[in-house]
Design a protein around this nucleic acid. Structure first.
Lengths: 217, 217
DNA sequence: ACATCTGTGTTACTTGCGGTAACACTAATG
DNA sequence: CATTAGTGTTACCGCAAGTAACACAGATGT
């Protein structure tokens, strides 16, 4: 048995796996996070057990699918973050890139963000405070990446690493929540949203004057 | 039949409803969002159909439960937001209130934030871009409330309403994501987190200097 | 008093989904 | 030519959501 060399069968298996992932992609794009394993199998023209052979269980398939999209989105974001422009412009470009992505494919976005939980089925007993264990890895990854960029490029004085991580996750959360709300209500153009968020990050909240008649917020 | 007056039966029904909600609360606090209707019924000492009579379906029970906790949390937040202190202090108090709440009862928090979706089961066809329809109402409500406070108290010039809403949802998202990450990784004390986030809102991101060796973020 | 309406409670069922077992077929590999 | 690794099937289990259909108790109106 040779362990190092790719046999013909293995390569065909990988190809199949990719085809299955693309089928799953189509279904998720159509049905959102409610996509069932049956539906995905049907779309791929096969039956459930094959999916389970390839991906183990549903969260395995989810992870594979999510990794694809997450990687793609993170590449776009990195590009925006690395563009040759000043800080404000790059922050706006990054926000806009993210918002454009979720605007273009809301179903995929929804699938990545709200994976429908479930997971541990029988006799679990996992218990414990596993808060966040199943939350969308996309947010975490974006937060960590942004934290890295911030720490690499900004001079934040003592405690900079901690601060950068807090900010990374905080900014990503801000972007996410505002984007989620905006996508649903569509209260303004994307450009307006980007500018408003950048203004917030630029300290306009602290700089704003009190309104006459009451103590300032 | 009198429509205006509460009959004895109705009052007893309301009481029962409250008891069921408290049982559900206990189960959710113990099992997290995976709490099944069977388990809740068992905890209440009854069987499923009664739950369905009272709450319609699972999302009905979820909504009732969520409203209780959401209202309670929002009351705390409003109190922090209305305290007699300057803006920065109040922002910090509000952040701290939220973080203390999720720290104290992570299971409840998880239930509120990640309701396990599901919902529209059969023959749906709802389709459409309903992104965010089922996202945690808690985040939305907090965002809207904060937006209101911001708009009421701050002088933001033209387009203030739009700006306030964007900021409301953005800040809440920042708080939520940072809190979620913090609760899971516990990288620092609550006070540190609060100060870091407030610094972010106070424009330290824009004010920070570039690090030597590259273009600033 | 008696029928009635309202709310409480049950058992037993259907439906759908995640996941698995057991089995059959095909082709590259030695 | 046997083995192995992959593809594929049908038929099933277990479980959770949700739904009849039926039984009982107590307040209510005539």
């Amino acid at each position: 048995m040779d362990t190092t060399q790719r046999t013909e069968q293995q390569r065909s298996a990988d190809r199949r796996r990719r085809e299955l992932l693309e089928a799953a992609d189509r279904v998720v794009l159509r049905d959102g996070p409610q996509a069932s394993m049956n539906a995905i199998a049907a779309e791929a023209g096969i039956t459930k057990p094959i999916l389970y052979r390839h991906f183990g269980d549903k969260s395995g398939l989810y992870a594979a699918l999510a990794t694809r999209h997450t990687d793609a989105l993170l590449d776009s974001l990195r590009a925006a973050l690395d563009a040759p422009a000043d800080r404000r412009e790059r922050v706006e470009a990054t926000l806009d890139t993210y918002l454009a992505a979720i605007e273009a494919r809301p179903q995929v976005y929804r699938f990545l963000m709200h994976p429908a939980e479930g997971s541990q089925s029988d006799s679990g007993g996992d218990q414990g405070f596993d808060v966040g264990k199943h939350t969308a890895p996309l947010l975490r990854r974006m937060g960590e990446e942004l934290a890295q960029v911030i720490e690499d490029r900004l001079d934040l004085g003592p405690g900079s690493q901690q601060l950068a991580r807090v900010w990374g996750h905080g900014i990503v959360g801000m972007m996410h929540a505002a984007g989620d709300w905006w996508l649903y209500e569509r209260p303004c153009s994307r450009a307006d949203l980007v500018r408003s968020l950048a203004d917030l990050l630029w300290g306009r909240l602290a700089a704003a004057g009190d309104k006459i008649g009451g103590p300032g917020f």
